[in-house]
Design a protein around this nucleic acid. Structure first.
Lengths: 216, 216
DNA sequence: GTCTATATGCCGATAGAC
DNA sequence: GTCTATCGGCATATAGAC
């Protein structure tokens, strides 16, 4: 079994997982368009630089009309951030349940990286606008983040053993793989030298090098 | 020559490079304290959420007094961002001039990663507040960024050959190593499980795995 | 160079008509 | 549910005394 075959299998499984994600289909049309507009602005201006005027402009509504659909700017942001975090958790968890462990590992890396490219606006809000949350909102999101990171670490640990000498770098490797995936949301722009699929495949191969340089 | 010996040599060279960096010693004391206060606030609140009141509070001055030392909030920010970018460029360039190429590579990875941890406030402004720049300011900074990335890519290319089969993943490996270093500024907090030195050494080993899984 | 006082403008949010 | 009009507050920046 070559590495390329394994990567191809991971890519297929990852695409399946990403397809299953729906975004905001439960909301009525007006609320959904507000969310889309807010998400875009939060992603490329940041929370503080985004005004209600920006959000309203993307929908054709007045700023006053926004308050019919959301309680406040803070609550609108929280709802977006929370659902974004849940989405990231869901894809990671779905990958983690595959077997064998090494297939789960590769699928997780592929899916996580590709999500950060494909859902770049959501991912930016999720990863880079945490400071805009406070109090109970911040706690809720922090909980989801911890759960996500735990799943990633578990998958990596399972994939690295048993049957192989324990890698003393395991903790560091986990941190690096998580870090690589998240940072995609910072540098990726549509039309970049890589497509989301290519980023997923690339990181899948690189993660394999990081985890077990001797496997292939 | 073991990998550990090589990492130790890179760490030593990297510390030398970082020691040579001075921060704002050319500014008069009041201006320097304004910069320090602004830097702290920009780093953990972001540019837009930082008010002149925040900056002034960190210095004991009134908001009006700030204007004696800096033209505007935008110019103060630009000066901080520009010098931060120049600092990042300087350490990368210093590492790039070492030889042999593989020692330059390891030292660059060590230094770049450690800088993002140790100078975390500066690094956050540099890497995550680009949106606050516009016009000529944005262009100036973009130029320094391009130069920095070019040096990194060149070092990695030189370290990977000649005398070895060309790695088809070379571009991707460069992107990943740059990405890993930058993302340290996002997740690192003082007192984390790793010290800046440990992060540098870890990333030095991981980068070696990424570049040439077969070398050690 | 630093202060207090203030000009000016935009922000988030609300009131009330339709 | 959407609008126009507006409130109260805080932001950056300036004026002018010391």
């Amino acid at each position: 079994m070559t590495i390329e075959t394994e990567v191809a299998r991971a890519a297929e499984a990852g695409q399946e997982i990403l397809r299953a994600q729906d975004s905001w289909t439960d909301l009525p049309p007006t609320a959904r368009s507000i969310v889309r507009s807010a998400l875009d602005s939060f992603a490329d201006r940041g929370f503080n630089a985004t005004t209600l005027k920006h959000i309203a402009a993307g929908t054709g509504l007045s700023t006053a009309a926004l308050y019919v659909h959301f309680g406040s700017k803070d609550e609108l942001f929280f709802e977006i951030s929370r659902r974004g975090h849940e989405s990231a958790f869901a894809i990671v968890e779905a990958a983690s349940m595959l077997s064998p462990a090494q297939h789960a590992f590769r699928t997780l890396v592929y899916t996580f990286a590709r999500w950060h490219a494909e859902q770049r606006t959501t991912a930016r809000v999720v990863q880079y606008e945490l400071h805009a949350l406070s109090g109970k909102h911040a706690e809720t999101v922090a909980g989801i983040r911890r759960a996500t990171e735990q799943v990633v670490r578990d998958v990596i640990t399972r994939a690295s053993g048993p049957g192989a000498p324990e890698d003393p770098e395991l903790r560091g490797v986990s941190a690096a793989i998580l870090s690589l995936g998240i940072d995609v949301a910072r540098w990726f722009v549509p039309g970049a030298p890589y497509t989301p699929d290519e980023i997923g495949r690339l990181y899948c191969r690189l993660a394999t090098r990081l985890l077990r340089p001797d496997v292939f």
